[in-house]
């Protein structure tokens, strides 16, 4: 059908830069003042040739230049199509969507814990609230998938790196360094994003010791709360209930979810 109409909350965003940041990982920089109003942790829901849009969290949010970054891993046909988009092309995006991170309390210690493609949204949080100078712990399976380390360092932040195979930083997962951080910092606050098993371990480590906000991934339909596809189990007032990653999330308090 010719000439797709655009509506409030639907953005026609031009790709101004495309970079392959690692094997199977691409970052697109988009020009869109509307998207650049996003809160770290929110996401863009991107039209692809498939039946569903693809949700991608913002890696960069730059209101002054009106630009945002989307850093994603190629995992299927939709993201493969997205990775092949070129500079100058335009994307049909719904967003910014969802609830992002609540700002950190500057009077309390703050730590970012990211795994793999969960690292980029934490960078946008670090950049947005840089005066609160978080400690940064990032991990990946192997060296080349440790994303955005230099970007964090350019903000002047100390970065601890782990890899599953020991090819970069400390061998192991982010949980070891997080445990050490928790022991050294009372009343801390932790922002985390990564694979769900990693977030479950973060939630467990932080229980009773630090307030944790976690950004979740789930297979998503409409992206705006209508279809109830992207739910996760949460603690309701009297019993378990499902909450929508696209609307109540993607960022939840770790303690409100059932892991």
């Amino acid at each position: 059908m010719a000439g797709q109409q655009f509506h409030d909350g639907q953005v026609d965003a031009r790709i101004v830069r495309r970079e392959e940041v690692a094997r199977d990982h691409v970052e697109l920089i988009l020009e869109s003042p509307a998207l650049a109003r996003a809160v770290p942790g929110q996401f863009a829901h991107i039209l692809t040739p498939g039946m569903l849009r693809r949700p991608v969290s913002f890696s960069r949010i730059e209101p002054d230049s009106g630009r945002v970054g989307l850093l994603f891993q190629v995992v299927g046909e939709g993201t493969a199509w997205l990775a092949n988009c070129q500079e100058g092309e335009r994307l049909d995006i719904l967003g910014p969507l969802g609830h992002g991170f609540a700002p950190p309390d500057p009077s309390r210690p703050w730590c970012l814990v990211g795994g793999g493609v969960g690292i980029p949204p934490l960078y946008s949080a670090a950049a947005q609230w840089r005066e609160s100078a978080p400690d940064v712990i990032i991990g990946a399976r192997t060296r080349e998938w440790v994303l955005m380390q230099k970007d964090f360092e350019q903000l002047g932040l100390g970065v601890r790196v782990t890899t599953d195979d020991g090819s970069w930083g400390q061998a192991g997962t982010v949980i070891g360094p997080l445990q050490e951080w928790l022991e050294g910092h009372a009343d801390g606050q932790v922002f985390s994003c990564g694979p769900t098993p990693m977030l479950a371990a973060v939630a467990s480590a932080c229980r009773g010791r630090a307030a944790a906000q976690v950004a979740l991934e789930q297979r998503m339909g409409c992206g705006i709360g209508a279809c109830l596809a992207c739910v996760v189990p949460a603690r309701g007032q009297t019993q378990m209930e499902y909450r929508r990653v696209c609307t109540e999330g993607p960022v939840f308090l770790a303690e409100e979810l059932i892991w």
């Binding site: 297979r219 339909g221 109830l228 378990m240």
Partner: peptide, 19 residues
């Protein structure tokens, strides 16, 4: 309450759901 996730899956020209 609805069904446990995942609740959607893409197929060629189709969408499978279990909400």
């Amino acid at each position: 309450l609805g069904n446990p996730p995942p609740r959607v899956w893409e197929t060629p020209m189709g969408l499978l759901n279990s909400i």
